[in-house]
Nucleic acid binder design. Structure first.
Lengths: 94, 94
DNA sequence: ATAAATAAGTTTGAAATACAAACCAAATTG
DNA sequence: CAATTTGGTTTGTATTTCAAACTTATTTAT
């Protein structure tokens, strides 16, 4: 009756991160931090996990003498997000 | 940008329980256990939490010499579910 | 009549998760 | 040059999750 929900996306903050990336395609650490309201610490470990799962790529470099971390969703990440949304429909449709 | 998601409903099993109750209005322990695939132990503690939050009522009695536990969603539970669904839209709408 | 199995839950304990606080390194500002 | 800001990472504890073990009462089999 109910499909399994990807445990990685069953988290408010990770879902918000993926939600931004699925539309924005690419966004940096600070932008996502502000949009989601996550602390830097939480965001750091969340993107780590999403990266380990292959849902996003992390690109770190120095720009204007400041570190910058850019995140980009992968095809696998898009699929995971789409699947999650589909599965959710079973739960939230009265 | 993103509304908070009720942490109680941010759980596959509890969301499934509420999903059943919001349509069925009333359902018993065994029925929900089978529909959700939860173990009895997990279901027992999940409904405990949902009950503490005032999202459902637990009615226990003996029927045909067997214990029976009937769950019923409360108005507060319905509201929580509706709010959760609304809040989710912000996340899952690309 | 009694031993074994089933039904309907609850309690417990270990493992995973989440969250915030503390930390670090480099750059900038007063 | 000391203090603050920026952009993060690491650490520690508190909570949550999940399954296994347990309980109590009822059937079924012998």
């Amino acid at each position: 009756m109910f499909k399994d929900l990807d445990p990685l996306l069953l988290s408010q903050q990770r879902l918000a991160i993926m939600s931004i990336l699925v539309s924005a395609d690419e966004a940096d650490f600070v932008f996502i931090k502000e949009k989601t309201g996550a602390t830097a610490g939480n965001l750091s470990s969340h993107i780590e996990k999403l990266n380990e799962a292959g849902y996003l790529e992390i690109d770190k470099f120095i720009e204007k003498k400041r570190p910058r971390t850019v995140l980009k969703i992968t095809p696998k990440g898009i699929d995971a997000f789409d699947d999650y949304v589909k599965a959710l429909q079973d739960y939230i449709r009265k």
